[in-house]
């Protein structure tokens, strides 16, 4: 009787302690990556290989999603703005919403689900098949050889992908607003140029995406490295990567926005 009553409490305590323990391990893991990233920077080929898998192969999904997000922004923005007789401000609306929020956040969410999950699965499977242990036996540090290059590749790729998302989104908005609806092209661009500030909007958006890149890749490599070395464990770790990344991106976005704007 007493057992069944305290079981949920004990479970809650276990989950909390486990979460704090993992948070501490993740922080130490980040420190270890930073300390051991000398090799991934000296042998830059390793990092370049990972940039190819994490960044270059994400180009298609980023470009296509950016285009559609921009087109939807153009359509919805036009419908709402034309009610107030200010459809001319469509360029400013599309550019500002993409640069400040949608570009970095959506690019990071896509990156987490496409590349982050792949990183977790790969590292987790390496752990499950004891490749990481084999490396340690050969005096190759798996964090320096496997984890750090992936981490830096994610940090490099994320701002590039976010910038590309912004550009294609703006062209999507341009396509709908100017080519389909028939707004004036000059007004579209000049309204945008008047509203967008280089430091406030462009640079801050890129700083945001850099933070997201660090967070997403750290979560991805950590979940992979920390995965239970079984098929089910790797699968659970991949799910956790996507879920945790999405939550961290959105929470971090709120904090960064509060600081920046």
């Amino acid at each position: 009787m007493f057992e069944t009553l305290t079981a949920p409490l004990r479970h809650l305590g276990h989950v909390t302690v486990n979460a704090i323990w993992r948070l501490g391990f993740a922080s130490r893991f980040l420190l270890a990556i930073l300390l051991l990233s000398g090799q991934s920077l000296r042998r830059f080929q390793l990092t370049i290989r990972e940039v190819y898998f994490a960044g270059v192969l994400s180009l298609i999904i980023i470009v296509v999603s950016g285009l559609f997000v921009g087109m939807v922004l153009g359509l919805q923005g036009y419908n709402t703005l034309s009610r107030f007789g200010s459809a001319d401000a469509l360029g400013a609306l599309v550019a500002l919403s993409l640069l400040r929020e949608l570009g970095p956040v959506l690019a990071a969410l896509l990156f987490a689900s496409r590349s982050g999950s792949a990183m977790t699965a790969e590292i987790g499977l390496m752990k499950a098949t004891e490749q990481l242990d084999a490396m340690s036996v050969m005096a190759v540090n798996p964090i320096a050889r496997v984890v750090a290059p992936r981490f830096w590749a994610g940090v490099i790729s994320m701002p590039v992908l976010a910038a590309l998302f912004n550009v294609t989104g703006i062209f999507g908005g341009y396509f709908v607003g100017v080519q389909l609806i028939g707004l004036d092209e000059g007004t579209f661009w000049s309204q945008m140029q008047n509203a967008v500030d280089l430091h406030n909007d462009v640079i801050n958006g890129l700083i945001k995406s850099l933070f997201f890149g660090i967070a997403v890749t750290l979560i991805a490599v950590f979940e992979g490295y920390d995965a239970t070395p079984t098929a089910a464990g790797v699968s659970a770790a991949t799910t956790r990567t996507v879920v945790t990344s999405a939550l961290v991106i959105l929470a971090l976005d709120f904090v960064l926005t509060a600081f920046m704007f």
Binding site: A95, L99, V160, A163, L164, N166, V167, I170, W189, M192, Q193, V196, D197, L198, D201, V202, L206
Partner: peptide, 10 residues
């Protein structure tokens, strides 16, 4: 992309 954003958009 960054150049485009800074020159054409901003």
């Amino acid at each position: 992309a960054v150049t485009f954003l800074s020159l054409k958009v901003a």
